[in-house]
């Protein structure tokens, strides 16, 4: 199959899946309430620290309180789309039930098909959970409100970086899925890895507030690209000169895709479909 056709098929799957996922709005809207609540508590905690802690520590922190507040809201809006989004239940179900046999019969590349499908599913939470949370973040009293982007350039870089982040997180998920083919009890380790990724993506604490000696490592590990790097551009703790960080995201994406394809290929060779 040519790469061009592969891409066209993938794009079609992506369109269908996006449209389908967008139908499930009520559940996500309810979920956004939880996100809002979560955001409020996080902001309260940060406010307490920024206000009452030793002033010299506060001044030496890489982010200001206003930047952290914006970070929290954006993180709530994006977190589900990348870090917290588990494996695609439908696909895992197919692996567990043996329906993967049908998938293999389709006249298209399985990796591309699943990749497009998962990627398409990522936009619904962004719209239905992310936007309401952001709206709430915009109308709250000043100390809880999200600030505007640091600059127009920063906003543009964030949008580009956000797309890169989604491609990256889907690529990593595909790697996990490929490993998962042929293992019946894989939910535990997979959950652990996803949680690990969530922590390292900055979802629990903006990475720039982690201890200083870890900063180099934190920036170059793959999961910073899930969320932290895009948000740095928005809040202005990274500027135009740091645009190369998007290349870090793309590099990891390429690595995960190559690995994922290789693992899937070797797994599918040995997979045995039972039943008739």
């Amino acid at each position: 199959m040519t790469a061009g056709k592969n891409f066209r098929v993938g794009a079609a799957v992506f369109r269908i899946k996006t449209a389908e996922a967008l139908q499930y709005n009520v559940a996500w809207l309810a979920n956004s309430l939880v996100g809002t609540f979560w955001g409020l508590i996080e902001i309260t905690v940060y406010t307490v620290f920024f206000t009452y802690a030793n002033a010299s520590y506060v001044q030496s922190a890489a982010l200001t309180l206003a930047q952290t507040v914006s970070y929290v809201w954006l993180a709530q809006a994006f977190f589900v789309s990348n870090a917290m989004m588990g494996m695609d239940g439908e696909i895992v179900g197919k692996i567990n039930s043996g329906d993967i046999g049908f998938e293999l019969c389709r006249p298209m590349d399985l990796y591309t098909y699943w990749y497009a499908k998962i990627f398409g599913g990522r936009f619904a939470p962004l719209v239905w959970r992310g936007l309401p949370v952001l709206l709430v973040g915009m109308v709250l009293p000043a100390s809880y409100r999200i600030s505007g982007p640091a600059s127009i350039g920063g906003l543009l870089l964030m949008i580009i970086s956000m797309l890169a982040a989604m491609l990256l997180s889907v690529a990593f998920n595909m790697l996990l899925l490929s490993v998962r083919i042929g293992i019946a009890w894989g939910d535990g380790p997979v959950n652990m890895i996803l949680l690990f990724a969530g922590v390292l993506s900055g979802g629990y604490l903006p990475l720039q507030l982690w201890p200083d000696f870890m900063q180099k490592f934190l920036l170059f590990q793959p999961f910073a690209g899930y969320m932290d790097i895009p948000l740095r551009f928005y809040v202005g703790s990274a500027n135009m000169r740091d645009a190369w960080q998007i290349l870090v995201q793309m590099g990891w994406t390429a690595i995960f895709i190559l690995l994922g394809r290789a693992v899937m290929k070797s797994r599918l060779k040995s997979v045995v479909i039972q039943g008739g």
């Binding site: 802690a53 629990y204 604490l205 507030l209 201890p211």
Partner: peptide, 21 residues
């Protein structure tokens, strides 16, 4: 693992800002 990571953010905050009062 989930239980341990949950308060991690707060613990790291303390390491960044020292204690609060």
């Amino acid at each position: 693992f989930a239980v341990v990571t949950d308060p991690l953010g707060t613990v790291l905050l303390f390491s960044r800002f020292g204690s609060v009062g």
